[in-house]
């Protein structure tokens, strides 16, 4: 039916790339129509705010053990202080709710760091490759092809098992460790900070290819257009051309890819920590909490729900928001 719809006026086609005052209003209106994305946004903001307020909301110290009998059910009152264990206690008597809040902070920070770093690196490499072509392009392309033709999850696991479980192998500048530590409220003694940082590094290493591919394609398709030629003839330099003309065009798909890579980073971190090659106890993450939970679920069946539900809420949430953004930013991308 292509020929019949091709005859339709331009008004019925996409609006996304048109620059106008009302663009963001339209995007917002379209996004608000996506009910699941709106619900997801609400839930994620809630989790996000809770994780930011972890030190205020948490009723107990993060790693304090033996607070109450192990696996006290939810809403047990602490025998000493009389404070409520809202979600009960874990296998060594730590408060579940407290650990869940700190885990949220760590898991979400890791996801955002990975997605941001990977997208920025991918964008830069992709833009360079697409814009300058030649040797830069062939190197980036070879690396991309190589990454595409290896079984990435097993390799990720191997690298994680070597680097993350023994984070002393990588030398980190102290200020970066301090930054990470302060952001995620980590212990400054021991290898906790280095471990979390290594997780970010390793996941970024495997996460940049999508953004690079996308950006390269975008740049390739945009760079031949007339307005780039005219910008160039007016004396704009390359960086300026990329920032002013290419990035805005690549923006809608990149935002969508970013949201989806948040979901990817979150599930990857959870999976690694769950499998025992990621962030290890006592540093709480939803993944390693889930690992302990499954070990004891035969006797305490409610326990896996505690870390499991936030994992699935965030994973689904990022996916739905990505879908909503795809619909809102560029209807033509709709699958």
């Amino acid at each position: 039916m292509a020929s019949t719809t091709a005859d339709l006026p331009a008004a019925s086609r996409g609006i996304a790339l048109r620059k106008s005052e009302g663009q963001w209003t339209i995007v917002l209106r379209r996004f608000r129509r996506h009910r699941l994305a709106m619900i997801s946004l609400f839930v994620l903001v809630l989790i996000f705010v809770a994780s930011l307020m972890a030190p205020i909301l948490a009723p107990f110290p993060r790693d304090a053990t033996g607070l109450a009998p192990r696996f006290s059910p939810p809403l047990t009152t602490n025998p000493q202080t009389g404070t409520l264990h809202i979600l009960g206690t874990d296998h060594v008597g730590r408060d579940f709710f407290t650990r869940l809040l700190y885990a949220a902070r760590i898991t979400l920070s890791v996801a955002f760091s990975v997605a941001t770093a990977a997208t920025l690196i991918g964008m830069t490499l992709g833009a360079l490759a697409g814009y300058f072509r030649g040797i830069v392009d062939s190197i980036v392309m070879r690396v991309l092809e190589f990454m595409a033709s290896i079984p990435d999850f097993p390799i990720l696991l191997i690298i994680a098992s070597i680097l993350i479980t023994d984070p002393k192998l990588l030398p980190y500048p102290p200020f970066v460790l301090d930054l990470i530590g302060n952001l995620m409220l980590l212990n400054s003694v021991g290898t906790e900070r280095a471990q979390v940082l290594t997780m970010i590094v390793v996941l970024t290493l495997f996460g940049w290819t999508g953004a690079a591919r996308l950006m390269r394609g975008m740049v390739l398709s945009v760079r031949e257009r007339d307005f780039i030629e005219s910008a160039r003839s007016l004396g704009a330099n390359n960086v300026r051309i990329i920032l002013r003309h290419v990035v805005p065009n690549a923006f809608p798909p990149l935002v969508v890819a970013y949201t989806l890579s948040l979901a990817g980073a979150l599930t990857a971190e959870t999976a690694l920590s769950f499998l025992g090659v990621g962030i290890t106890d006592p540093t709480p993450t939803w993944g390693n909490m889930l690992q302990f939970a499954t070990n004891f679920m035969l006797t305490n069946p409610w326990v896996p729900l505690i870390p499991g539900i936030p994992v699935v809420l965030c994973s689904l949430g990022f996916n739905f928001i990505g879908d909503g953004l795809r619909d809102a930013l560029d209807p033509r991308l709709k699958m």
């Binding site: 889930l290 679920m297 069946p301 896996p304 499991g308 994992v311 994973s315 689904l316 739905f320």
Partner: peptide
């Protein structure tokens, strides 16, 4: 399409554990 979204959005980690919880326990 919505169901497919749920399927791909939920890690097998979670669905697996939930499956055990519901159908086994």
């Amino acid at each position: 399409t919505t169901l497919a979204f749920f399927g791909s959005g939920m890690p097998t980690l979670f669905t697996g554990v939930m499956g055990i919880l519901i159908f086994a326990l």
